[in-house]
């Protein structure tokens, strides 16, 4: 029996260490190391005046996309969600499906009334199911 207990303790020890490790990584989330990111609505973002890194989802307002004359990668647009709008600025390569009226998911920071996004993903253009970057089997049931 002694030998069996020895193994049981070893396994329990390993599992305990790892569970603690997962917990530690979760709570140590910070701006440089965003392991967990909150997903907010525009209203919540404005109310809380959040400055930490968050995710936002919404629709690109029709006709609001302005691409900088000097740099094609620099874009501003208005994000609509839950009856609120929010100006967004994004610098970088945009997904092929990015255009007016498309649903996007942004990640970044809220600074002085503007959302500075460093990640932009498109979701669910009407023609296709799901977002391919997120779901690389092309599925997701909703249309």
């Amino acid at each position: 029996m002694a030998s069996k207990n020895k193994f049981l303790f070893a396994i329990i020890g390993v599992v305990a260490v790892v569970v603690f490790w997962i917990y530690w990584v979760s709570v140590s989330s910070s701006a440089d190391n965003p392991t967990l990111v909150r997903y907010l609505s525009i209203e919540e973002l404005k109310d809380q005046n959040q400055t930490s890194r968050v995710k936002l989802g919404g629709i690109v307002k029709d006709g609001s996309i302005v691409i900088s004359d000097s740099d094609l990668l620099d874009v501003t647009f208005l994000l609509e969600q839950g009856g609120e709008t929010l100006p967004v600025r994004y610098y970088g390569t945009r997904p092929d499906l990015f255009k007016d009226g498309v649903e996007v998911i942004l990640e970044g920071r809220y600074e002085d009334g503007i959302f500075i996004a460093d990640q932009l993903q498109t979701k669910c253009a009407s023609r296709y199911e799901g977002d391919l970057r997120e779901e690389n089997n092309s599925q997701s049931g909703e249309l």
Binding site: P34, L36, R38
Partner: peptide
């Protein structure tokens, strides 16, 4: 509230 878990995690 939705909390997303990213690749860093």
């Amino acid at each position: 509230t939705k909390i997303t878990v990213g690749p860093p995690f």
